[in-house]
Amino acid sequence: MSRRDERLHVRVNPIACTAHGLCAELLPERVRLDDWGYPIVDDRPLEPELVALAKRAAAACPTLALLLERGTRPVERATGSVPPPRVRARAAR
């Protein structure tokens, strides 16, 4: 496998995560659940044979909270993530 894949790791977006638990089922090598069902992610780099599983786990997450990242950049960025709503009153000058 190429050396690039060795720097892939998984990370969870804690705000998006609602503890469905699919990630721990599909990728127990990197994800285990705490006492409340939320994932504790081991962010060590993925071995090449785990990459496909990790991709599947990220695709299976119902809230797209599990992310696959290389270094600090995400491999597939979910572009639809929404920033906070902006309802601003203009400041009086």
């Binding site: 998006a16 695709a59 797209l64 979910a78 639809g80 929404v82």
Partner: peptide, 10 residues
């Protein structure tokens, strides 16, 4: 296309 359009739309 879920990953592209984002969770809210989906």
């Amino acid at each position: 296309l879920r990953r592209r359009i984002g969770l809210r739309v989906w």
